[in-house]
Design a binder for these strands. Structure first.
Lengths: 238, 238
DNA sequence: CTCAAAAATTGAGAATTATCAATGTAATCA
DNA sequence: TGATTACATTGATAATTCTCAATTTTTGAG
């Protein structure tokens, strides 16, 4: 039995998956007391860029957006976090390098860096999991770099829409869209108006339906083709 | 005494800094036999995107660029690696997610993933170091995202030039530029011509000198101001 | 339910950047 | 050295995207 708040199997800190040894349930997690749980409602700031960073958090439920200080009025969303991801790892200057804001109601497990070090030192498998999470985030960031660097507006929006499709769901089912047009723009490095226009164009061309707060893919093939499209390839020939 | 190829103190795998315990030199690294060393000359491909990924490498000397498969003719450089950084960590599908090319003569220490796992399991402090490296790379990637997302061409080029200044050197000293204009363009998400024009403009305005293969900052203040500049701020008013 | 506020859409014109094309310059090799 | 090739610069034009402004739609409060 696991002495911590988390229930599901693949919590980085305390899921059975992580703390149990090769032989199944024989090893037991003992991080009760090290963990605390917090909840935030949609729109709340979880932490602000520059604030002291002393806790590592595991996102248990909900979605977060990470943003930097606006530069010349514009904000840039650095990434979105979903359940299972880590945030707030120790920095060289012990301050958060970005602001985290809840996009939906959010549930996090917190552990102080000091305690996290103890856990890591005693549980090599946890360290491996943590490394794996960071690697995944790095891969995500590299995908963003690629998108921002070479893709024109339609392709960015198409990629973004595809990235929203929940894993294991039928691509034809509608899915929720928690970001506003402005937030999508901030994520994709575009203006709000450009995002709106691309959505309109996709709708006109029968690629998607986009009632408020959700999206439905009508033509996955074409959206995928657009998403992979680099600059210079024609749009309406597809 | 350390039984491995690496000599300097902060090698992730075998530097004294990493393997020795709190009490100094009492713990000894024993990774001889696990490590192999490889060298590449400038322009050589270290590994190619999609190739089987079985080794973790520590860049000992030189610089690497990481690129993805060109999309519609354009390549995107995902990042540059300098001495001390890790590359080739295990992926979910056991293939490299990008191509690594030597920009200068390069020297790497290699270790198989299997052996790396052993090292990580036995040396928690190595795991912490590895996590730290990944976090640093993630921070780097986020800086790139911010640059690509919100900065106009001049600001990107200015940031790039500033990022080249070797740490601890006088900012007024010239420093080498190993990337071609095209490579800079691929890194910054611009066209080769735009990069060339911005360099020309910087030169005309007395901000830099840029003889072949190197750069020298003539007016650090103004370059810094430009680097921080977002879209919409005027350029020639500075 | 109605009104006020916020978000999304649409249009027109301006700014930035890309593309195409030509020319200049530097490095390389026989 | 001269020829060849790659790299860099510059100009003219086109495409993309942004900005500003005006509407329309949606949301939430009372």
């Amino acid at each position: 039995m696991l002495n911590c708040y988390c229930k599901n199997e693949d919590c980085v800190l305390c899921g059975a998956h992580f703390f149990n040894g090769e032989d199944g349930a024989s090893q037991v997690c003992d991080v009760r007391g090290l963990l605390s749980r917090r909840r935030y409602s949609a729109g709340e700031t979880v932490f602000r860029e520059g604030a002291p960073c002393t806790q590592l958090m595991v996102l248990r439920a909900g979605q977060l957006k990470l943003t930097t200080m606006p530069l010349a009025g514009r904000e840039q969303i650095l990434g979105l976090l979903v359940a299972g991801q880590l945030v707030g790892f120790e920095t060289s200057d012990a301050t958060y390098p970005y602001t985290a804001t809840a996009l939906t109601p959010v549930d996090v497990c917190c552990i102080s860096h000091k305690n996290m070090l103890l856990v890591l030192e005693e549980n090599p498998s946890v360290a491996l999991r943590v490394i794996q999470r960071f690697r995944d985030e790095l891969v995500q960031a590299q995908i963003m770099i690629r998108n921002l660097g070479i893709k024109p507006a339609h392709a960015r929006v198409a990629s973004f829409i595809l990235s929203l499709v929940p894993v294991g769901s039928d691509a034809a089912d509608p899915f929720p869209l928690v970001l506003s047009r402005l937030e999508i723009a901030e994520l994709l490095g575009l203006s709000e108006e450009t995002v709106s226009r691309v959505f309109a164009e996709f709708r006109r061309n029968g690629l998607i339906e986009a009632p408020h707060g959700e999206v439905r893919l009508l033509d996955v093939r074409r959206v995928k083709r657009l998403a992979g499209m680099g600059a210079g390839e024609t749009w309406d020939g597809i």
